[in-house]
Structures are given as structure tokens and as C-alpha cells.
Design a protein around this nucleic acid. Structure first.
Length: 153
DNA sequence: GCCAACGTTGGC
DNA sequence: GCCAACGTTGGC
């Protein structure tokens, strides 16, 4: 099993929004970065655990946990002109962008704030903490994942 | 709102 | 293939 982290701006989609979805499940669409796409398409497997991160707010934080319930499949919003990030190059025969389905596992009662993560020596080298990292989907090592779990409970 | 960091685009 | 210009991300 592998571990991941996804970022979302709560103003567009928060973990509370995920909790309110049918089956508490959401298609993780709209990703338009090739490296993140490759993770979604090729590497995220059913049952993998995914940390949910709120970005672009006063206290950015890891706020919950979800699980991959469907592996990579073409992102239909790429072909939707009214969607946030349409890409006319992507076609049903030759899709460029992919999504997975994420199901909520739980919302952390004690979220792990970014400034807390930065102070934890166990999390040294974590991708999320690297300067200038803008990936919205990224792998998390098992050790880092376990350390983060100790912070949120 | 600012701005550093980064990815993408497109002229050459 | 280089690289300047541009748009976006996201912490602060």
C-alpha cells in the first residue's frame, strides 16, 4: 500500500464538502499538471491512503484522511467547456488528464498545521515541506505518514 | 495583496 | 533546443 497527499483550497473544495458528498466520495478531477497526472493515472491504487491538505488559507493544514476507491480513469471535465479547466487537446479516444475517486475515511479532530509539520524533525525531507513545491498530488513515505498520524490524534 | 517559485508556451 | 515571457500556486 502507498500513501499520498492531495491539496485543495477549501474555497473550491474542502474536506467538509467531501463529507457531504454521496458515499462521502468525490472524483478528484481538474488536475492539470503532468507529474500529478502520472501519479493519478499510474500509481495511485485502490486502498491507498491519502492525506487531505487545505491550502491557501490562514493556517494551511492536513485536515483528514481518505482512501482511493477507484483507480485512474479519464477526467471528463477536460472535455467540458464549462468546467474550470477544459483542455481541448484531451479527447475520449486520447485522454490527457486523469482522476481517481477518493472516499473520506475521517476528518482529524486535531488537524496538523503546516507550521507544526515544519517543526517536526521526523518530517524532514517531506515533499510537502520543500520550498516551491506546487504539486497538488504527491507521494508520502510510510514513515512520514505514520509520524503525521501521531500528530492528529 | 505581495511575491517567490515553478511549469508552460512560443518565438527564434 | 534555448530561454524570455507569462500564468499559476500558495505561503505569508
Amino acid at each position: 500500500m502507498a500513501f499520498w497527499l492531495v491539496k485543495s483550497e477549501p474555497s473550491s473544495f474542502s474536506i467538509e464538502d467531501l463529507a457531504a458528498r454521496p458515499q462521502q466520495t468525490e472524483a478528484w478531477d481538474g488536475v492539470r499538471n503532468y507529474q500529478a497526472r502520472n501519479y493519478l493515472r499510474d500509481h495511485m491504487k485502490k486502498g491507498d491512503l491519502v492525506l487531505f491538505y487545505h491550502s491557501n488559507i490562514p493556517i494551511p493544514a492536513i485536515v483528514g484522511l481518505c482512501m482511493v476507491t477507484r483507480e485512474g480513469y479519464p477526467d471528463p471535465t477536460a472535455q467540458d467547456p464549462s468546467a474550470a479547466h477544459p483542455d481541448p487537446r484531451s479527447t475520449p479516444d486520447n485522454p490527457i488528464w486523469y482522476q481517481v475517486d477518493l472516499k473520506l475515511v475521517r476528518i482529524f479532530s486535531r488537524p496538523a498545521a503546516l507550521h507544526t509539520l515544519k517543526q517536526d524533525p521526523r518530517l524532514e525531507g517531506m515533499l510537502l515541506l520543500q520550498k516551491g513545491n506546487r504539486l497538488s498530488v504527491m507521494p508520502v513515505s510510510a514513515a512520514h505518514f505514520q509520524s503525521i498520524l501521531t500528530l492528529v490524534q
